[in-house]
């Protein structure tokens, strides 16, 4: 189950990386993003919320997805699972804030940004499940030995 979750997260991280890479390219190339909602994407991409301390949020997203991917490639363990969870928590929190700004400050929705927010939400759900499932009561060799021993004695 944990291995499957990791695979699903890798696919999600690749998708997120692709979306963020496209938005970063759009930002630096000065082209208008492909958008079915007229100029909504341009409005969001050129708004003052599209930068954080002068750095395009698309680039921050790109680095974030790359970091998540890095943590997924790290050897399976408590630390790597925690790192993934921490990164997705930050990504989810900031995505939620940017979606709030789209809805209530910019009054325009960028479908690329929404896709990224959805991907980040799914990544967080998977990362949380992966962390919690990994910490569940593991089948211990002591436990099986005692029960087998006990039943063995009873049936003898």
């Amino acid at each position: 189950m944990i291995a499957k979750l990791r695979q699903v997260m890798l696919v999600l991280a690749v998708a997120g990386l692709a979306v963020a890479a496209y938005l970063t390219y759009v930002h630096y190339a000065g082209v208008h993003p492909a958008c079915t909602a007229g100029q909504s994407c341009i409005k969001v991409q050129t708004s003052q919320w599209s930068r954080l301390a002068g750095v395009p949020v698309a680039l921050i997203g790109l680095l974030g997805y790359a970091a998540i991917m890095g943590s997924l490639f790290a050897p399976e363990g408590e630390e790597s699972r925690l790192a993934t969870l921490g990164l997705t928590l930050v990504g989810f929190g900031f995505s939620a804030y940017l979606t709030f700004r789209e809805l209530f400050s910019i009054h325009a929705i960028c479908e690329w940004c929404v896709s990224s927010a959805v991907i980040m939400t799914l990544l967080l759900a998977c990362a949380l499940a992966r962390y919690l499932l990994a910490g569940g009561p593991a089948p211990e060799s002591h436990s099986s030995r005692y029960s087998t021993g006990s039943s063995g004695r009873m049936s003898a």
Binding site: Q48, W49, R51, L52, A53, L82, L85, G86, L89, V90, G93, F94, Y97, R101
Partner: peptide, 19 residues
């Protein structure tokens, strides 16, 4: 980890909203 992530997001939001 949740507290640390919340702090990072809060700082980012403060920078974004402030500017």
């Amino acid at each position: 980890v949740v507290a640390l992530a919340a702090t990072v997001v809060a700082v980012a939001v403060a920078i974004s909203a402030g500017s």
